[in-house]
Amino acid sequence: MEFAFTDEQQMIAETARAFFAENATSARTRAAMEGDGIDTALWRDFCEELGFSGISIPEAAGGAGLGLVELAIIAEAAGAHVAALPMLGSLMLCAPAIAAGGNETQREEWLPGLLSGATIAAFVEDPSLIVQNGRLTGGSRYVAHGALAGLFVVTDGSGAWLVRRDAVGVSVTAQTTMDQTRPLAEVRFDGAVAEALADPAEGLAAANRTALVGLAAEALGGAQASLDRTVEYAKERVQFGRPIGSFQAYKHRLADMMVEIEQARSAVYWAACAVDEGSAEAPLALHAAKSFAADTGFRCAADMIQLHGGIGFTWEHDAHLFFKRARSIQTLLGKGDWHREQVAAMILGEAA
């Protein structure tokens, strides 16, 4: 596998970093948190001006036809600024599911709106979902951006269906959410009319791969930003006549953060490369990347709060935005313990 970025990937990385640094400011993120959890202008520019929304969607389906390495680059840049965008549901789960598992009619109907940002989609998983004669009964309390979705991709773990928000029998209730940049909603179906994906197995597999890499890359971006901001603070904050970054104990904490981040970076891009290259290691790499990067993001955000001292514990400081995002990433798409169990089973087999 080639772990060095190509010239095209370097250009994408520079463009993404510059875009989020200029536009995904703390003030705009907090304004979105006070509203519906989305920075609408940022979302429009992300989708329409830069075309990042279809980065990993095949060209035949209207996307850019690139891979998960490029998606990871963009997700890492977004995570570094805790961007208030509905990337998880619309672009990491639903769009790949429809592109890979939908028929031509389903792709033509939904993908243009998803990739332009005009339509927001949310992913609903309910293992106990009841399906009878094309109607669904069930739902979930924890659907990212569910309150804003115009389309739901619903699964019981094996089948997958498309349900319109305005269908009879669909109810949505916004929830009080820890990470206000990724608000959750309770979505319930009571005999709602659903349209089955043409190839649910392929669609769900594509969604799972894309979302695991995307979330891991988000966590990596948040961890790196936590370290960078803490280093800058360590240079400016003076105690006992010296910058606090000159104290040995402080240096050790920063060094520990850096080591974990570099390991997480290797895990994230290993997973993205493995998927793009069709490697047999891909399933193992995906579980490793999600568990390691999510935990690294959480630890670095927590260290950021502690190493900023008293100011880090105030709501006005952005450290809390990173901490809450990192905590939510840990719980999405399987907790770290579950992913590590999958890694153990793959490596050790029955001995696990």
Rank of each mutant, 00 (worst) to 15 (best):
A80R: 06
G37T: 05
A60V: 13
A61P: 04
I12G: 06
T29C: 15
S53Y: 05
M11P: 01
P58I: 08
A41W: 13
L66M: 11
T25R: 06
Q10G: 10
G54M: 11
L50N: 11
E48T: 13
M33S: 00
L71C: 15
G62K: 06
G37C: 10
E34G: 15
F46A: 04
F52A: 03
A60T: 14
L66K: 12
L71V: 07
A31Q: 13
M33Y: 00
N23T: 15
R44D: 13
A24E: 10
A72P: 05
A16Y: 08
T40K: 15
F19S: 01
W43Q: 11
F20D: 06
A41D: 15
G51C: 04
S26C: 10
I74K: 08
A41Q: 14
A21Q: 12
G63W: 09
I55P: 04
E48G: 01
F46P: 03
E14N: 12
A41G: 14
G63I: 08
I12V: 15
S56R: 12
A32T: 04
A13I: 02
A13D: 09
M11W: 14
N23P: 01
G79R: 10
A61H: 09
A13V: 03
G37Y: 06
A31Y: 02
G51L: 02
L66T: 02
F19L: 04
I55M: 14
G62R: 10
L71D: 11
N23F: 12
A16T: 06
Q9C: 00
A84I: 12
A77E: 05
A78F: 11
L66R: 14
R44C: 05
V69M: 09
H81Q: 03
S26G: 14
L66E: 06
E70S: 12
V69R: 15
D45K: 12
